[in-house]
């Protein structure tokens, strides 16, 4: 006996439904509750998560710059110099260390950072930069006026 009506009622929603949904469940594996088990709830959560990841990747760059600046400012304060004077002094000497490296030096190489801050102080005094009035000339820096162009 052939049951043609039953066969006509069965329809496939797509042969690869399982694997299509598995892609979503793989990303949602660490979510809580129905968000990791039920497809219609998981897809919304996954879309949200991927959006946040994309946005966060662009924000991370500006966040890191803010963090580096905070760390360099703290390092400068330890040695009694203002952040802007420090940066200006270094750039006038053609020292092109970037913020990431300066922050690393402030944490891990305090004596190197002190050397850079002393150098900045004497250069800012030589060039008579705005914030340099309150600094005493560092005795351990010998410029012989050669750093001023």
């Amino acid at each position: 006996m052939v049951f043609t009506t039953a066969m006509m009622l069965v329809r496939s929603r797509g042969p690869d439904e399982f694997w299509r949904k598995r892609k979503i469940f793989k990303i949602a594996a660490h979510f809580s509750g129905r968000r990791r088990n039920c497809y219609s709830i998981a897809i919304k959560a996954v879309h949200r998560a991927l959006q946040f990841a994309t946005i966060g990747r662009a924000l991370r760059k500006s966040d890191m710059i803010v963090l580096w600046n905070t760390r360099i400012r703290a390092g400068c304060e330890e040695h009694g110099i203002e952040l802007n004077t420090f940066k200006e002094g270094l750039s006038r000497c053609d020292i092109q260390l970037n913020k990431k490296v300066l922050a690393d030096l402030a944490i891990w190489e305090p004596s190197t950072f002190k050397a850079l801050s002393d150098l900045s102080k004497s250069v800012s005094i030589d060039y008579e930069l705005p914030g340099s009035e309150k600094y005493n000339v560092p005795t351990n820096v010998v410029t012989r006026g050669l750093l001023k162009k």
């Binding site: 760390r71 703290a74 330890e78």
Partner: peptide, 9 residues
């Protein structure tokens, strides 16, 4: 802790 170079939020 903003006075420390090891600061992180």
């Amino acid at each position: 802790g903003l006075h420390k170079p090891i600061y992180h939020p």
